[in-house]
Design a protein around this nucleic acid. Structure first.
Lengths: 233, 233
DNA sequence: TTACGTATGTTTGTCGTACAAACCGGCAGT
DNA sequence: ACTGCCGGTTTGTACGACAAACATACGTAA
C-alpha cells in the first residue's frame, strides 16, 4: 500500500450536472419571489425559459417537490404558499433546533471550531452592518455550517437549510429592518460569548430569544416572551 | 352560488402516478433492508426489476435523493448508510421535535384531538403487545399524525416522518425488545395523562425520556439521563 | 337566454431510443 | 511491473411520441 507522499486531495470535481443548476435556478427564483407563491409551473414554459429538455427539468421538479418548495395540487405544480400558521411553526421548529445545536456546540466544540466561530460571527456582524440581505443570508448560512461542524451534527444543518429555504421570502422582511439588525448583532455576540464560556443553558436561552424576535419581526407579531433583556429568569 | 345540498366530499382521487409507486417501493425496500445500506443502485437493473422506464425511475430516484435515503457518491447512487453519530443526532433531533410537539399539543389541542389521542394511544399499546413491528410503526405514525393535528403543526409531522424513514432499520432493533415494549407502553400512557392534564412541561419531560430510552435501545448505549422513574426532579 | 354537450387545445405522465462522456476492468506490450 | 489502450457499463441529457386528464370555447337545444 502506497503512503500518501504528497497531501494532495482529490481533484476538485466540479461536475455540476445540469439538473443541479436547474434546481438551483428554480430554488433561487422561488426564494426571491421571482416565482410567486401559488403561481403555476408549466413544464413547457420552464423548458423554453431555461433552455433545457423536459427530462432534466422534470427531475429537478421532483427534487423541489421533495423539498416542499413546490406542491402538486390538483391543477398541476404550483409554488407552495406558506400560511402564517406554517410560518409560525417553522420558526418554532427553528427555535428548538438551534437551541439543540448551540447546546451541543457549547459542550463538544473544539478549539478549531471556536476559532471558526469567531470568524463567522465577525463576518455576520459586518454583513448586518452592510445591510445587504444576500450577504446576511450567506453569512448566516456559514455560521450554521460552523455551528453544526462544532456540534458534529449535520442532520440539524440539513433540516435548518431546508426550513430556511421555505421562509427565505419572509426573512427578507425581517432582515431589512435596521433596528432589528442592531439587536441581532448584539444577540449573536452574546451567543458567541456564552458558547465560548461553554454555558449551554445560556446559549440555548439566547438562541430561543433570537429566533423568537426574528419570528416576530417576520410575522409582525409580538414576541411570545417579550425578551427585551436576556437576563436569567 | 349553489349551496352544498348534500355533504358530499370530493371523490376519492386515487391517481397514484406510477412514479409514486416506484418511490414507495424503493423506500420500503430501503427501510426494510432489502436494499442494504451502501449497495449500489444501478438504473438499468432497477428498471428491469420494477418493469418501468428509466425516465420514471430516475424521477423517483431524485425524490429519494432529496429525502436523503440515497446518496450520490462518486460511484453512482448508493443507499445511504447512517453512522452511529448521525443516528445519535437523529434521535437528539427527534427528542426536541417531539418535545415541542407535545408542548404545543398540551396547550392547543381541542376536545376532538384529545379523543383521537385516546384512540391512537390505545391502538399503539395493543400494537406493542402484539409485538408485530410493522403494526407498531404504523400505530406510532398514526399517533404522530394525531399529535401534529392537535398541535396544528404539520411541519413537525413532515420532519419526523422524514427522520424516521432514515432510522427505521435501527428501530427494528429497539422495537423488538419485549422489555423495552413494556416500558414504552407505560411511557406512552404517562404522556397521554400529562397531555390530558395539559401539563406541557411534564409532557415534554416524558417525551424526551422516551426518545432517550429508544435511542439507547436502538444504539446499545446507556441512556443519557437514566430515566428509570419519571418523577418530577 | 340559459343550460348542456361536444369539439379542440393544453398539460401531464409515461415510454423508447439515442448518444456523448465518465468510469471500470482487463489485456497486451514494453 | 508498469503503462497505455480498448471495449463494456453506467450515467446524464435530449428528443419524439402518445394516452389520459383537464380546460376552454363553441354550438345547439330547450
Amino acid at each position: 500500500m502506497n503512503k500518501p507522499l504528497h497531501g494532495l486531495g482529490p481533484v476538485r470535481q466540479e461536475a455540476a450536472p445540469l439538473r443541479r443548476k436547474i434546481t438551483s435556478a428554480l430554488r433561487r427564483a422561488i426564494e426571491t419571489g421571482a416565482l410567486a407563491p401559488g403561481s403555476r409551473l408549466v413544464e413547457k414554459d420552464l423548458c423554453a425559459e431555461l433552455d433545457v429538455s423536459r427530462t432534466s427539468l422534470r427531475e429537478s421538479l421532483r427534487e423541489l417537490e421533495a423539498e416542499g418548495l413546490v406542491t402538486n395540487g390538483s391543477k398541476g405544480l404550483v409554488v407552495t404558499a406558506i400560511s402564517p400558521q406554517e410560518a409560525r411553526n417553522i420558526y418554532a421548529v427553528r427555535g428548538v433546533l438551534e437551541g439543540l445545536l448551540v447546546e451541543q456546540f457549547a459542550r463538544q466544540a473544539d478549539g478549531d471550531a471556536m476559532a471558526r466561530l469567531d470568524v463567522a460571527v465577525a463576518d455576520l456582524a459586518s454583513a448586518y452592518e452592510e445591510a445587504v440581505i444576500e450577504r446576511i443570508i450567506a453569512a448566516k448560512a456559514e455560521l450554521y455550517e460552523v455551528l453544526c461542524a462544532g456540534a458534529d451534527n449535520f442532520i440539524v444543518l440539513e433540516l435548518l437549510s431546508r426550513l430556511n429555504t421555505r421562509i427565505n421570502r419572509l426573512r427578507f422582511a425581517s432582515l431589512s429592518q435596521p433596528l432589528r439588525a442592531k439587536a441581532s448583532i448584539a444577540e449573536i455576540h452574546a451567543l458567541a460569548d456564552a458558547l465560548k464560556r461553554r454555558d449551554a443553558a445560556e446559549a440555548r436561552r439566547i438562541a430561543l430569544g433570537h429566533i423568537d424576535a426574528a419570528a416576530a419581526a417576520a410575522l409582525g407579531a409580538v414576541p411570545k416572551n417579550t425578551a427585551s433583556e436576556e437576563g436569567t429568569p
